[in-house]
Computed example of a mutant assay.
Amino acid sequence: MPIPEDSGRPLTALVTGASSGIGRATAVQLGERGARVVLVARGRESLEAAADEVRAAGATAVTVCPADVLDEDAVGAVVAATVAEHGRLDVVVHAAQVMAYGRIEDVPKEVYERVVDTSLHGTATVARHVLPVFRRQHAGHLVIVNSLLGNVTTPVLGSYAVAKWGQLALARVLQQETRDEPGISVSIVQPGGVNTPIYSQAASWAGTTGRPPPPAYSPQRVARRVLATLDSPRRVVQAGLLNPLITAGFRLLPGVYDVLVEPLLRRLALAADAPTGPTEGNVFRSNPDGNATEGRWRSI
């Protein structure tokens, strides 16, 4: 069911991962619609910079709420405060994520688990607090930003693939468990490569940081896909020109896929010009200097 923008009432939208990348681009586009936007991420400094952009875009109101999606109490407090201030919550876009490069045997246990936890348990935390609000309202739309790597796997990004496969399973369960309330929609958006800072912000035990594999979408283009699900709800939306082809190869020609995937990854998705020693990146803490809407690569 589309989110109604009736009676002149602006939408109230909450965006996680709003300090950078797809989350930040989506928040700006919600601002362009005149929404009341609540921005959630770990670091206040980057959120304040994002808030300035969202206000300039035309948002009716902007609220900055620093919180980690793995912090149950903090997420609950943000949702409760949003409803208390605005009377309802119409839209939640969950885009928070961290990434790590390296073989499973090389990535430290704590880093691996944090990548998986942020995606899987962070999504569950958001759902636990948001869906009861939607049920009381008999309406609401949760959009979960997943990934092409929720459908396929690749070496060197094993922790991220496990995180996104688990998140996809959880999102599908949420779709099934909300079928009893027709006013609630849960949409999954699966980008391919996107020109955001997540690659250069990632942890790495691969000798280098990553880059978005071409053709890389702009975060604004993915944000338009996210907002399109509000106008015409869909269960799963692809945001990558080659996603269907790559997924078909993974499923139908697994032997060929496995032969090709690592050399292609090393050629197209690792930043040869950015060698680095082992680094935790922004996995455990916000890095405001690296946060921005777009990364340093070309996008379409």
Rank of each mutant, 00 (worst) to 15 (best):
G240T: 02
A67M: 07
V37N: 01
Y112S: 13
A13S: 05
E72A: 13
S147Y: 10
G31D: 12
G277P: 09
L252S: 12
V133R: 04
T208P: 11
V133I: 02
R224I: 08
A13N: 01
D258P: 10
T82C: 05
R36K: 00
A202Y: 13
G17F: 11
E48G: 05
P275Q: 05
R103F: 12
P66W: 03
S286G: 10
K164V: 15
G21A: 08
L174W: 00
G34V: 09
A100P: 12
P215M: 06
T154G: 11
P10Y: 04
T12L: 02
P213Q: 06
P219C: 02
A216N: 05
L149W: 15
T12W: 08
G31A: 08
V54A: 04
V78E: 12
V79A: 05
A35N: 01
I22Y: 03
V152L: 04
A223V: 07
A51H: 09
L253W: 14
L241W: 15
D52E: 15
L157K: 11
E113S: 12
T209Y: 15
A51E: 01
G31F: 12
A203C: 07
V40I: 08
E113P: 09
A206Y: 15
D73G: 12
L170V: 10
T276W: 12
L70W: 07
L149N: 11
V189H: 06
A84L: 11
V62Q: 10
P278V: 02
A59L: 03
N195G: 04
A171C: 04
I22D: 08
L157W: 15
P66G: 03
Y217K: 13
V83Y: 05
A81E: 09
V40P: 08
